[in-house]
């Protein structure tokens, strides 16, 4: 009969109208990202052996680096590494080419910037202290200090919440301690925010505090463990 299809359509939309929604509220509710999701390209300077394979693999000249000869040996070392993200095709060719997993894609997909030159990510490695990596996102410079600090704090807190172990790894001596510290921070929000603030303001102090946290926890555990032993 004519009109049946119309009624069926009305029924379907009505059913969906009272049913569940499928959208998510994006900034509050983050989308679920698969493991292999290709977000922002990240460069882990410590692993780089300056082989240049990534720049050769890249189809669109996104990657470039400066290197210099290490005195007295054939080895090269990195001076700076630039990812010009605006030309990136997110094709994974550089990641596949890299022999040491220096390059990888993070899950950070919010890559838009207000200025074109902010898109460029430059990693500069000073010669003296290779441990203190300066990640210079160029666009951050002209911002007033206050907001910058706030942003840093927020970023650090987020990092701590998301991936605490990796973030605090440099604060303590070994992996085990890092794991303990991560556990503490995840449990206690106050400690987490304090640690985040300290890590930005004063690294040395943060390290001390971190060590203190870890030691206290270790002691507690010892006590707890001892009690358990006794009960056995």
């Amino acid at each position: 009969m004519k009109g049946q299809g119309l009624l069926k359509g009305l029924y379907i939309t009505l059913k969906r109208a009272v049913g569940k929604d499928i959208t998510i509220q994006y900034p509050e509710q983050m989308p679920y990202l698969q493991d292999r999701f290709r977000g922002c390209l990240h460069f882990d300077y410590t692993k780089c052996i300056v082989c240049g394979l990534c720049t050769k693999a890249c189809p669109n000249n996104v990657l470039s680096y400066e290197s210099r000869q290490v005195e007295g040996s054939k080895k090269k070392e990195l001076v700076s590494y630039t990812i010009d993200l605006q030309y990136c095709l997110f094709c994974n060719l550089c990641v596949e080419a890299c022999p040491t997993n220096t390059l990888y894609f993070t899950h950070d997909f919010e890559l838009s910037r207000y200025q074109r030159d902010q898109i460029k990510i430059v990693y500069e490695i000073p010669k003296e202290e290779p441990s203190a990596v300066k990640v210079d996102l160029k666009g951050d410079a002209p911002e007033p200090d206050e907001t910058k600090k706030e942003k840093q704090l927020a970023a650090m807190t987020a990092a701590l919440q998301k991936n605490p172990q990796k973030t605090v790894r440099k604060m303590v001596e070994n992996d085990e301690d890092a794991e303990i510290l991560a556990g503490i921070l995840l449990e206690d929000e106050q400690k987490l925010s304090r640690m985040a603030a300290l890590m930005i303001a004063d690294r040395e102090k943060a390290k001390k505090v971190a060590v203190a946290f870890v030691n206290k926890e270790k002691k507690d555990r010892l006590k707890g463990g001892g009690a358990e032993d006794e009960s056995k």
């Binding site: 969906r16 109208a17 009272v18 049913g19 569940k20 929604d21 499928i22 959208t23």
Partner: peptide, 8 residues
């Protein structure tokens, strides 16, 4: 419209 299209 949103509800019918399973949006909010």
């Amino acid at each position: 419209a949103g509800f019918m299209q399973q949006r909010l």
